[in-house]
Simulated scan of single mutants.
Amino acid sequence: MIRKLQLENILFLDIETVPEEKTFQNLTKEKQKLWDDKSKYQRKEEFTAEAFYDRAGIWAEFGKIACISVGYFTLREGKRAFRITSYKGEELQLLQEFSSLLNTHFYKPQHILCAHNGKEFDFPFLARRMIIHGLSLPSKLDLFGKKPWEVPHLDTLELWKFGDYKHYTSLKLLTNVLGIQTPKDDIDGSEVRDVYYEEGNIDRIVAYCEKDVIAIAQVILKFRQEDLLVDSEIISV
Rank of each mutant, 00 (worst) to 15 (best):
M1W: 12
L5E: 08
L5D: 04
L11F: 03
F12K: 00
E20K: 15
T23P: 00
F24W: 13
T28E: 11
K29A: 12
L34S: 03
L34R: 12
L34H: 09
W35H: 00
D37T: 14
K38G: 00
K40P: 12
K40C: 12
R43K: 15
K44V: 15
E46A: 11
F47Y: 15
E50C: 01
Y53T: 01
R55Q: 11
R55T: 04
R55W: 08
G57F: 05
G57Y: 07
A66Y: 03
S69T: 06
G71D: 02
Y72G: 00
T74R: 15
L75D: 10
L75Q: 13
R76W: 14
K79S: 12
F82T: 04
F82V: 02
F82L: 11
I84G: 00
S86I: 02
Y87N: 04
K88A: 02
L92K: 15
Q93R: 12
L94E: 02
L95M: 06
L95H: 06
Q96N: 13
Q96L: 15
S99N: 05
S99Q: 12
L101P: 05
Y107P: 11
Y107A: 14
K108H: 07
Q110L: 10
L113I: 07
L113D: 02
K119Q: 05
K119L: 01
K119F: 04
E120G: 11
D122F: 05
D122I: 05
F123V: 03
R128P: 07
G134Y: 11
S139M: 12
L141Q: 01
F144L: 15
G145A: 15
G145E: 14
G145H: 14
K146V: 09
P148K: 12
P148G: 13
V151G: 03
V151D: 02
P152D: 09
L154H: 05
L154C: 00
D155Q: 08
T156I: 06
F162V: 05
Y165P: 09
Y165E: 13
Y165N: 13
H167K: 13
T169C: 08
S170L: 07
V177C: 10
V177W: 10
G179E: 09
I180V: 03
I180P: 00
P183Q: 04
E191I: 01
R193P: 06
E198W: 11
G200M: 09
D203I: 04
V206M: 02
V206N: 02
C209I: 02
V213F: 01
V213T: 00
I216L: 00
V219P: 06
V219Q: 07
V219I: 13
V219H: 03
I220A: 13
L221I: 08
K222L: 00
F223G: 06
R224Q: 14
R224I: 06
R224L: 13
L229C: 05
V230P: 10
I235S: 08
S236R: 06
V237S: 08
